[in-house]
Simulated assay, not measured.
Amino acid sequence: MRETITTRCRDKGLHMTPRRRIIAEILEASQDHPDVEQLHQRAQARDAAISIASVYSTVKLFEEAGILDKLEFGDGRARYEDADRAHHDHLIDMNSGEVIEFVDPEIEALQEKIATRLGYRLRGHKLELYGVPIKKD
């Protein structure tokens, strides 16, 4: 079983205040890629005293500790996801901003093949696709 964000914070020696713990729990429960404003709204629903500055400082701390990944999809909003998630790629709906996670074995194999052909052993990659929904008549 994968460790929680809260557990990894503790293991890295981060001081977990009650507010940081709430933010960590919200991130753990997130099925989307929330930005700071979304995290702040969710955190305030649990504790109205949590400021946006607290959310900003917490995600920065978690990012610097390697617990969160910061994602930037060109819309001016930094979004966050657990750095310990299974590998996946992203498709970004340019109309709605929705981020769709996917894994495609053919794409994974093609990337390995390209790296090998160019004389490299692939150690990682990040794939972001940007598109608009196909209109159905």
Score class of each variant (00 low, 15 high):
residue 14 L to Q: 13
residue 39 L to A: 12
residue 17 T to D: 13
residue 38 Q to Y: 09
residue 20 R to H: 10
residue 49 A to Y: 05
residue 11 D to I: 00
residue 33 H to R: 06
residue 78 A to R: 06
residue 64 E to L: 15
residue 8 R to P: 08
residue 64 E to S: 15
residue 41 Q to G: 01
residue 63 E to R: 15
residue 51 S to K: 04
residue 8 R to Q: 12
residue 12 K to N: 14
residue 45 A to E: 15
residue 74 G to T: 07
residue 76 G to K: 12
residue 28 E to H: 05
residue 8 R to S: 12
residue 42 R to S: 04
residue 72 E to H: 09
residue 9 C to F: 06
residue 46 R to P: 01
residue 42 R to K: 14
residue 40 H to D: 04
residue 66 G to S: 12
residue 66 G to R: 11
residue 47 D to V: 03
residue 44 Q to S: 00
residue 32 D to S: 07
residue 35 D to Y: 14
residue 49 A to C: 03
residue 43 A to L: 06
residue 53 A to I: 04
residue 48 A to N: 07
residue 14 L to R: 13
residue 47 D to L: 02
residue 24 A to D: 12
residue 40 H to Q: 10
residue 45 A to Q: 14
residue 49 A to K: 11
residue 51 S to G: 11
residue 46 R to Q: 13
residue 44 Q to T: 15
residue 65 A to I: 09
residue 12 K to A: 15
residue 21 R to A: 08
residue 23 I to G: 08
residue 8 R to W: 10
residue 17 T to N: 14
residue 58 T to I: 12
residue 22 I to A: 00
residue 12 K to P: 00
residue 64 E to V: 05
residue 59 V to G: 05
residue 71 L to H: 06
residue 75 D to M: 12
residue 49 A to I: 07
residue 17 T to I: 11
residue 8 R to H: 11
residue 73 F to Q: 05
residue 54 S to R: 04
residue 15 H to E: 14
residue 77 R to T: 02
residue 67 I to A: 08
residue 33 H to V: 05
residue 26 I to H: 02
residue 19 R to D: 11
residue 59 V to P: 13
residue 67 I to F: 05
residue 37 E to P: 01
residue 17 T to W: 13
residue 66 G to D: 07
residue 24 A to R: 01
residue 47 D to T: 08
residue 61 L to W: 03
residue 75 D to S: 07
residue 73 F to R: 07
residue 38 Q to I: 05
residue 54 S to F: 07
residue 50 I to Y: 09
residue 66 G to E: 06
residue 71 L to N: 07
residue 33 H to W: 05
residue 54 S to A: 15
residue 71 L to S: 04
residue 28 E to Y: 03
residue 29 A to S: 11
residue 55 V to S: 08
residue 60 K to E: 09
residue 30 S to V: 01
residue 49 A to W: 03
residue 71 L to C: 05
residue 25 E to H: 00
residue 17 T to R: 14
residue 57 S to E: 08
residue 78 A to V: 08
residue 71 L to V: 07
residue 61 L to A: 15
residue 32 D to K: 04
residue 12 K to G: 00
residue 70 K to Q: 14
residue 23 I to M: 11
residue 42 R to E: 00
residue 25 E to M: 05
residue 57 S to L: 13
residue 20 R to F: 05
residue 60 K to W: 01
residue 67 I to L: 13
residue 26 I to T: 04
residue 35 D to R: 00
residue 62 F to M: 15
residue 69 D to K: 09
residue 37 E to S: 09
residue 54 S to T: 15
residue 42 R to H: 07
residue 59 V to D: 07
residue 77 R to N: 06
residue 75 D to W: 12
residue 60 K to V: 03
residue 72 E to C: 06
residue 32 D to A: 06
residue 37 E to C: 01
residue 26 I to Q: 03
residue 43 A to V: 01
residue 40 H to W: 15
residue 8 R to V: 07
residue 31 Q to I: 00
residue 42 R to V: 01
residue 23 I to N: 04
residue 35 D to L: 00
residue 48 A to L: 02
residue 72 E to Q: 11
residue 51 S to R: 12
residue 45 A to D: 12
residue 28 E to I: 02
residue 76 G to F: 10
residue 54 S to M: 15
residue 70 K to R: 15
residue 25 E to R: 11
residue 25 E to N: 02
residue 54 S to P: 04
residue 12 K to W: 08
residue 44 Q to E: 09
residue 73 F to P: 03
residue 30 S to W: 00
residue 77 R to I: 00
residue 16 M to K: 05
residue 49 A to R: 09
residue 55 V to Q: 04
residue 78 A to E: 08
